[in-house]
């Protein structure tokens, strides 16, 4: 199986590569259009600040490519937020796949949310063999409110979307590559789609 990991100088790609290795797969980190287009699965990770990440995507023309992809695509953390219409972080316009906008947690809670929280109302093949209220590792200051495309919910200050799906596009706010064996199961489920 050919797995492309979108390379746009944003994020800790090594963790994702090692997670794939533990599952017996090899990922290719690339920003090459033809390699991404011909991959069986595409991973779109990301950490850091949304505005500069979007700028880097644009520099490489990846903002044009990503919405045209037909194979399963998984946005992770900031990757998921960049697949939305916009994020409040740096007032950044996203790729508009998901009909949602990421907003910041208020100061009523510690920001960023950092640590293990539960996911529930699971509603996708992405969560095969994952039980309700399983723990996932999250680190984020902005969140996507509940919406039609929610396939998992988490509660921190409010109930929000910890995963989204629309057609072949999937997004997870948590880090499956860092969420123990159940995170690995979710990655494995994605690769089996």
């Amino acid at each position: 199986m050919k797995i492309a990991i979108i390379d746009y100088d944003s994020g800790n790609i090594q963790s994702v590569l090692f997670a794939l290795e533990r599952l017996g797969f090899t990922g290719t980190v690339t920003n090459d259009w033809s390699k991404i287009k011909s991959a069986d699965k595409v991973l779109f990770p990301g950490v850091g600040e949304a505005g500069s990440a979007m700028k880097k995507l644009k520099e490489k023309g990846l903002d044009v490519l990503i919405p045209t992809l037909k194979q399963p695509v998984l946005g992770i953390c900031l990757g998921m937020q960049l697949l939305c219409k916009s994020t409040q972080e740096g007032n950044t316009e996203g790729l508009g796949i998901f009909n949602a906008n990421a907003i910041r947690f208020s100061n009523a809670v510690k920001v960023p949310q950092m640590g293990w929280n539960t996911i529930y109302d699971l509603n996708s093949p992405l969560f095969a063999n994952i039980k309700e209220n399983e723990y996932m590792y999250l680190v984020h200051s902005f969140y996507v409110p509940k919406c039609e495309e929610s396939i998992a919910t988490t509660n921190y200050e409010t109930e929000y979307s910890s995963a989204l799906q629309k057609n072949n596009f999937y997004g997870v706010q948590f880090h499956p590559e860092k969420s123990g064996k159940f995170g690995a199961q979710i990655l494995s489920n994605f690769l089996a789609l």
Binding site: F18, R22, Y137, H175, S179, G180, A184
Partner: peptide, 8 residues
Amino acid sequence: VAKAINIP
């Protein structure tokens, strides 16, 4: 370490 473990 990063290869071996799946927590942060």
